[in-house]
Amino acid sequence: MKIDWAALGSVFGVSLVVTVALVGLFTLGIAGLSRQEKASAQGSSAALALTGAYACFAACAAAVGYGIYLIVA
């Protein structure tokens, strides 16, 4: 019996890293948006936070796109 430990290990590693990275990025994006929301409520703006937020969401969207590519391919 041959158990493909390498494949299992890479599934484990990739899943862990990708999940944590994606959730982290997305949360940063949300935090950025939230900061902008607060800032605009006080009349100022947080352009940097907003730009960062959009960058994070773009990265997440790219990951979702890659996921769809994997499903189709």
């Binding site: 899943s15 862990l16 999940t19 944590v20 994606l22 959730v23 982290g24 997305f26 949360t27 940063l28 949300i30 935090a31 948006l33 939230s34 900061r35 902008q36 929301e37 607060k38």
Partner: peptide, 21 residues
Amino acid sequence: AALLATRLTYTLGKKADGNAA
């Protein structure tokens, strides 16, 4: 993976609330 991701999102998103979050 979900456990670590949950910890992370609660830590990073501590200040995020309101509609945007």
